[in-house]
Nucleic acid binder design. Structure first.
Lengths: 124, 124
DNA sequence: CTCCCATGATTACGCCTGTAATATACTACC
DNA sequence: GGTAGTATATTACAGGCGTAATCATGGGAG
């Protein structure tokens, strides 16, 4: 199955659904209200498009729908990352990592975690 | 100055110009011929759009133009990366890195390089 | 029974993208 | 001086995206 293409705005909607599901449109709208000043109709449009794309499914609940993700966050992250690295770093993930590690602000905990992940890699 | 928005296809054209500049349209078309099966007119369209966006500048050279990047690769990478991390990882670069390190195939040299970069980070 | 309101469905619209084709201008050759 | 090539400039067109407004429908308030 090919993952549906998810736009920037749609991604925010997915984030809400990945955090909790199922949710009605009102709840999704409420969850987004803090971050984005979208008209409620706009959010409904995104939900519709996501359904049409197969990224979200729904079941009827009385007079409304309950929406839930139809694709996993992990898969989507994977796909987005792949396309990002391929675009910007010509597929060279190593180059990307080096650049990011040098540039990002990392907590001590993250550094520890990254070291550990690298150890694992080194063993292969 | 706000960086222009560069699309996927346009990014490939920029890559060619970042590698060597200035170049005439023919040279850019030739450079891309191996990777993408674009009609030469398509490439010219991208060059035009990039000029219009201010990402590329040109000077006349006889009957043709010589194009060169008007924005630096580093700036563009930075911007693309920022928007990617903010979108997919809600701005949490650390989370992104952990995910990538676990997932990417890395050469021994890259692992060494990353370790070193982490050492530097740890010292701060 | 009737009217309003919320909900989903359909439609709108301008800009961006991918992918070119057509038009115009200039040069180099016969 | 016309003609064939190139080069750039302009135009095309469908599908995606951001941002909503309008339409239709069914259930609850009165």
């Amino acid at each position: 199955m090919v993952l549906p293409q998810i736009s920037d705005s749609e991604w925010e909607v997915m984030t809400v659904l990945w955090a909790r599901a199922p949710q009605g449109a009102q709840e999704v709208i409420a969850a987004l209200a803090g971050r984005r000043r979208w008209n409620s109709r706009t959010v409904r449009t995104f939900l519709n498009r996501l359904v049409k794309k197969g990224a979200v499914s729904y079941v009827a609940d009385g007079n409304r729908y309950l929406y839930r993700p139809a694709v996993s966050r992990e898969q989507c992250i994977h796909e987005e990352s792949r396309s990002f690295v391929s675009r910007v770093f010509a597929g060279d993930a190593g180059a990307m990592l080096v650049q990011f590690v040098q540039q990002a602000r990392l907590s001590a905990e993250e550094i520890r975690q990254l070291r550990k992940a690298l150890e694992e890699k080194g063993k292969e």
